[in-house]
Design a protein around this nucleic acid. Structure first.
Lengths: 218, 218
DNA sequence: GTCTATAGCAAGATAGAC
DNA sequence: GTCTATCTTGCTATAGAC
């Protein structure tokens, strides 16, 4: 699976331009903690939902008191918004990386099968950020959902384009409607969280079945 | 859409056999309240999740105080388990009713398309019980989930049989695996909660796309 | 950066009046 | 059957010591 970019932690909390001698590659302590908090929060939000996860739970899992989290995040909502944002960013990047790897020469069915596999790999194998997004997006507070509208639309565009292209090339089943196909594929992928067992299921196998069902050979 | 059976409220809290003169068809006050609580709880659990819904919220929505709910249910978990159980029961019954209506003479694709449509109609149009089940099953407490294992398996069997039959009749796409097809269909259906807008989307249209993609004409 | 301590509030649940 | 009142616990968030 393609390695996923780490979330860039350049919050520019302090002006480091005046300290040119400092090793820029050494992560600062606050950044390490912030990253740990995000990772643990992703796991817990994914497993218990937004309301079911308390800041005490998250703090305990990183060896901190709940109050200490406020040094890194202004509120539970801000922390959740960040976790969920990273979640979309990661699938989006994984899918685009896969499409780049395949290149323009690949068949359209090959590209869609690859995009499906990349989405599944991120969801099943890589991290809990994307899973947390899928599990929490509906019950998260409005402020969190609103902050994610744009990134969600950006990722959706990738699929809109892929399926649109397949429709124009007449590669969808005769009676299938393009929008319905897109929604069905993404639904099958996201719902796979409820049954997937990375020990038993292989992303490529499910990707094969989906691509073979929705997209004709081009 | 086929009318769905009301949940039978025969809790036999009191022995009515000694009161033969009483009109058996008149619902008792407790039963009316209980039913109102369940309906409202389904709506709120569906919208806000298990942990995000308080007994105070539910009470307020039925015009009661939180404490009064304990006359009808022993705990929040018991209330949630009942709501979610009714949710599976309703889709299950709707799908079986549709299959009975179609009869044995229907084509296999016709039966599967009908089952898909019936599942969607229950989810989108009929009530919030099934939606609440789908939204809450993962984050609900273990005791709730455990109490639902059997009913969930019972409903799953309907689909296992339908897709198995299609596989034996060689009606699945060449490279598609039967289990994957079943999981993909149910995933696409359940995830439709996240995008469906009963004003804009018609259950039969989405059902048509899914059946046409996964099942060949028999 | 993380702690202790706590404010302020809401949760699930129970007891007893009506 | 429903209410009032309350217990206990847990929550988010803040203030200030270290």
């Amino acid at each position: 699976m393609s390695p996923c970019c780490e979330y860039p932690m350049t919050d520019s909390l302090s002006d480091r331009s005046a300290l040119a001698a400092t090793d820029e590659s050494a992560p600062k302590r606050a950044d390490v903690s912030r990253q740990q908090i995000l990772t643990v929060a992703a796991t817990l939000f994914c497993a218990r939902g937004y309301a079911g996860t308390s800041l005490r739970d998250i703090g305990a899992a990183v060896g901190m008191k709940a109050g200490s989290l406020y040094y890194h995040f202004a509120s539970k909502e801000e922390l959740a918004a960040e976790v969920l944002r990273i979640g979309v960013e990661r699938v989006h990047q994984a899918v685009e990386a896969r499409l780049r790897t395949l290149g323009e020469s690949a068949s359209l069915r090959g590209k869609i099968e690859g995009a499906i596999a990349a989405h599944l790999e991120t969801l099943w194998l890589e991290s809990d950020f994307t899973s947390a997004h899928i599990r929490c997006i509906h019950t998260a507070p409005p402020s969190v959902r609103n902050s994610l509208h744009q990134v969600r639309r950006d990722y959706e565009t990738v699929w809109r384009n892929l399926i649109g292209e397949a429709a124009r090339a007449s590669l969808l089943p005769p009676e299938a409607e393009p929008t319905a196909v897109r929604l069905a594929i993404l639904g099958a992928l996201n719902w796979s969280l409820e049954w997937s067992d990375p020990g038993r299921h292989k992303p490529e196998e499910f990707a094969r079945t989906l691509a073979a069902s929705f997209i004709r050979e081009g």
